[in-house]
Simulated assay, not measured.
Amino acid sequence: MTSAPPESRDRIYRSPMALIGGFLLLVIIGWLGVDAVVSGSGRTPWLALAALILLVPLVSAFTLRPAVFANNDRLRIRNPFRVIVVPWGEVETLRSGYSNEVLSKAGVKYQLWAIPVSLRGRKKAARQTARQASGRGRGSSRGLGLFGGGMHTDALGGRTPLPEGPTRAETDKIMDDLRELLEARTKAETSQGEVTVRWAYEIAGPAVAGAVLLAILLAVG
């Protein structure tokens, strides 16, 4: 009897800025909330406690939680309130517009919260591409670079060839990597299966409880 092949190792994609921002927000919320619970008087400690129960899960959900895990068999998307597992065989396409999305063959769209689109990053990449093209043009007209390619001066004063191809924003590079993986693995036997969706009750439950408690305290106050 042959054993099933081991699952390939996940590539993990997360937003560094979201992680940093989420950590700082949690520190501020925790500091203010704990101080109000310990030092407050009257209803203040209860209001602060309810706010903590509401805000900590929500901030964690939208900043620390989102991640995308990709291996040779499937794409696992951990969004704020759901975990979606999409085998590569069920992925129709990966789209990038104002957000990065996965479109399943059933026509259902799933947003990749962990890979946000950076319009600023795209503009920066476009400017770099334009500068590279300009440098190649000048280098070619002066006969610089191997096979007529452009050259630029580095920090040490040396001349090195300009990189080939257009510059891409970081999140666009990630989507390119995922598209390559999709193209390579979409017909593989181990990449077939059904899309599964699981709701993150461990996030929604405390947040709802905190919201209800806060509403009750405000209503009776």
Rank of each mutant, 00 (worst) to 15 (best):
R185Q: 10
P161F: 07
G157R: 05
D10K: 02
T93N: 14
G121N: 06
P166S: 07
L55S: 15
L181P: 00
K173A: 08
Y110N: 03
R138P: 01
A48V: 00
K105T: 14
R78E: 15
S60G: 15
G193L: 00
V38W: 07
I203T: 12
A188F: 06
G210I: 06
R78W: 12
T186S: 06
P87Q: 03
I12K: 09
L25P: 12
V86K: 12
T63S: 12
L156I: 10
P66A: 01
D172F: 01
R76W: 03
L58Q: 11
A106S: 13
V59F: 07
L25E: 01
V91T: 10
M175R: 04
L24D: 08
A133K: 14
V208S: 11
P66Q: 05
F69W: 10
E92W: 08
A61M: 08
S3Y: 09
G107W: 07
S140V: 05
I216D: 13
E194M: 11
S191T: 07
N100M: 10
L64P: 09
A133Y: 11
T93A: 15
G121P: 11
A130W: 08
R74M: 07
M151H: 09
I28F: 05
L47Y: 04
I77V: 06
V220S: 13
P45W: 01
L24F: 11
R179M: 02
M1F: 08
A211G: 08
G149F: 07
A130D: 13
M151W: 08
W46F: 15
A204M: 15
L19T: 07
F69D: 06
R82G: 04
T190P: 05
E170N: 06
D73C: 10
G137Q: 15
Y13P: 01
R122Q: 12
M175Y: 03
Y13E: 00
A219R: 01
E164Y: 04
G205H: 03
A219Q: 00
G149Q: 11
I28M: 00
D73W: 11
P166Q: 06
Y98F: 14
R138C: 03
R131W: 13
G143M: 10
W31V: 11
A18P: 09
E164H: 05
A18Q: 13
P80N: 00
G97M: 01
N100Y: 10
I115Q: 08
M1Y: 06
L178E: 00
G150N: 05
A106D: 12
S8T: 14
V108N: 10
D154I: 10
